[in-house]
Simulated assay, not measured.
Amino acid sequence: MFIRNERSIKEFMQLYPVVAWLIIIQLAVWFLTNFLQTPIGTLIENWGTGVNFYISQGEYWRLVTAIFLHAGLMHVLFNSFALVLFGPALEQMLGKLKFLVTYLGTGLIGNLATFLLGPALYSHVGASGAIYGLFGIYVFMVAFRKQLIDQSSSQIITVIAVIGLLMTFIRPGINVYAHVFGFIGGFAIAPMILANVRPYNPWVRRQHVDDGSIGFDPNRWQKKQRNKQLLKKGLWIFLGILVVLGLFSRIF
């Protein structure tokens, strides 16, 4: 479920448009607010950052806009990387609209918990609450809907979810409320959103050819074997990135 075998960025965007546009939007916002530091970027940052005090004054849109803002390059790249890995399978399984509502909904749950439980002047940005919401849905699959997730993916999501939650409390500067309650929100709504869904199928290709017919990859079985090996390597690389980020955050 978590190995990307699309042949191009164009194909990825065609198959998973919601995931693709979420990434494009948050990268574009980061480019304006952090890289170029333009007046419009400053306006977006001031208007969209999740600040508990301003939310308490009625600026409730900040509970959603904060999802698309990020503090720095590693922050936005890490969340975009996580969305590329874990978003496509759920977008295919849930459908575009339900996936978008789920993603924003779990992010909103995390930010709402931050507002209700965090300090009055607490300020936060990032899509981590929504990402952890996806983790919560996958963990529900592992626990209660095993027919929707293969064994290898179950092991991967279990390890990553455990490490991610542990690092939530180890690394400084983390919005613990968003991580924990985003995860809980995803787990809680999973029974409803996973009703009547089918397992993710990476071999269903909507490849458009000249005659308008649907293509099918004849080498799918060979690719599947190669992908199993890549899956193991990808897991260790991902875990290595988590460990390195954790170490650097403690050093600096």
Rank of each mutant, 00 (worst) to 15 (best):
F2M: 05
N5R: 15
N5M: 05
E6N: 13
I9N: 02
K10P: 06
F12H: 11
Q14W: 10
Y16I: 04
V18G: 09
W21L: 14
I23G: 02
I23H: 07
I24E: 00
I25F: 13
Q26P: 02
A28P: 09
A28C: 08
F31H: 04
T33S: 11
T33H: 04
F35K: 11
L36Q: 06
Q37C: 07
T38A: 08
G41K: 11
G41T: 07
I44D: 07
N46H: 13
N46Y: 09
G50R: 01
V51H: 10
F53R: 13
S56R: 13
Q57C: 08
R62L: 08
L63V: 12
F68C: 01
L69E: 06
A71F: 06
F81Y: 15
L83H: 10
L83P: 02
G87E: 09
G87R: 00
L90F: 11
Q92Y: 00
M93N: 02
K98N: 05
F99T: 04
V101P: 05
L104C: 07
I109P: 04
I109F: 08
I109C: 12
G110D: 04
G110C: 11
L112Y: 02
F115G: 01
L116Q: 09
L121H: 14
S123F: 03
G126M: 07
I131D: 03
I131C: 09
G133S: 07
L134G: 12
M141F: 02
V142P: 09
F144D: 06
F144N: 12
K146V: 02
Q147N: 15
L148F: 01
I149H: 06
D150R: 13
I160P: 07
V162L: 12
V162S: 01
G164Y: 00
L165N: 13
M167A: 03
T168L: 00
F169W: 12
I170F: 09
P172H: 05
N175E: 01
N175L: 06
V176H: 03
V176N: 00
Y177P: 04
V180C: 02
F181H: 09
G185A: 05
A188S: 13
A188M: 14
I189A: 11
A190V: 05
I193L: 04
I193Y: 04
N196F: 05
V197T: 14
V197W: 04
N201H: 00
P202N: 08
P202H: 01
P202K: 04
W203G: 10
Q207R: 12
Q207K: 13
I214F: 09
I214P: 09
G215R: 06
F216P: 06
P218N: 00
Q222P: 06
K224I: 05
N227P: 07
K228L: 12
Q229W: 13
Q229P: 03
L230W: 14
L230Q: 13
L231F: 15
K232M: 13
K232N: 07
G240K: 10
L245P: 02
S249F: 05
F252I: 15
